[in-house]
Write a protein that binds this DNA or RNA. Structure first.
Lengths: 197, 197
DNA sequence: GTCTATACTGCGATAGAC
DNA sequence: GTCTATCGCAGTATAGAC
């Protein structure tokens, strides 16, 4: 029992090592320009071992995607737990995304800048992913409860979060001189002004 | 002279045929999932002929990129010629992008959704491309002339154009039920309200 | 300039010893 | 479960006839 539990811990460790190397390489060079030998070399895990833990290359990409969709869902759920007001929720979501971008830029690069559908045929478009659905739902709630002006839900969602997401892309491209955190207040003020009831 | 001119017309024709097939395939399946045989098959131009007109696969992608960067620059220059007021210029730029998206979705898909740096090492990030610089400059002019409130230029640019670009992505993902043109007025009203002086 | 046939490379995936 | 060695193949690019 203890042995099997230790084994499965070890099993998870190897998976994590491979996933972290894949995250680095995929976010740096992209999925197609990263070969299995690249992952072997960077992770120190052998080809055979990688294929023991993952079905194929695509399966690595999928596990990575799932891991970080979950990470973001947890993040958003926490915010929902802690804050009831829609204005605050939206603000905290953008703040959390900015913080994640600065702390774990590879995660954001892989999640936002990758065309996952190009190599995972059955994945939904980013904007149908659960984290994005969450953003849409917050905005919808804001409109139903009168915090946000009545308008098309997609237009409102894009007004609230579109600028921030674009901003994150710029930061990942390295063309912003200032850190994201310094731009947050100014961005948020204008964004919220454009939709608040 | 006439012969050589006719030759070069023919030369350009073949290039255009190949580029148009590449545009279709790249925007549909992505650069890496599109093989030279795919392009041969779709364009009806033989492998040898393709390699006579282009140095390699990357060169096709680059020619395509240049062609449409130019197309967008021309579009934006026309707007600049016809309209002096910054508010109108910004509005017309977004309108032009929406129209291009509906008329030539493959062009927008290739330009906006492709990570060109993944296969063209020396290309600048999208946001440093000339069309994007143009948007930034219009916003800057608006701030200098008092049409747009004083703030960080990138924040303002993102407030004005970020939502529209995000919206276009959603449309390309096929998750918007309405056509872009129907959302334009509402989007524009809120966007401009968030930055106007 | 355009074609067909093919050479070459590098990758994804597997086999099989330990 | 992990490793090394290797197979088979897809895909880029070239050679060379026409």
């Amino acid at each position: 029992m203890i042995a099997s539990s230790a084994m499965s811990v070890r099993r998870l460790q190897i998976r994590e090592i491979v996933l972290n190397s894949a995250l680095y390489l995929f976010s740096q060079k992209g999925y197609f320009s990263t070969s299995i030998p690249d992952i072997v070399c960077h992770s120190g895990v052998s080809t055979g071992s990688i294929y023991h833990h993952f079905a194929d290359k695509q399966d690595i990409a999928r596990a990575l995607y799932d891991r970080h969709v979950t990470q973001m869902e947890v993040m958003f759920d926490d915010i929902e737990q802690q804050h009831g007001q829609v204005e605050v929720r939206c603000r905290e979501i953008i703040l959390a995304l900015f913080e994640l971008t600065e702390k774990e830029p590879m995660v954001m690069a892989y999640m936002l800048r990758t065309r996952h559908q190009e190599f995972m045929p059955d994945v939904a478009p980013v904007c149908s992913s659960r984290p994005f659905q969450h953003m849409r739902d917050v905005v919808l709630k804001g409109m139903n409860e009168g915090e946000i002006r009545q308008m098309d839900v997609m237009v409102a969602t894009v007004c609230v979060f579109g600028g921030a997401l674009e901003f994150i892309q710029f930061h990942l491209d390295g063309i912003l001189e200032k850190p994201l955190s310094e731009c947050f207040d100014e961005l948020w003020r204008h964004v919220w002004a454009s939709v608040k009831a």
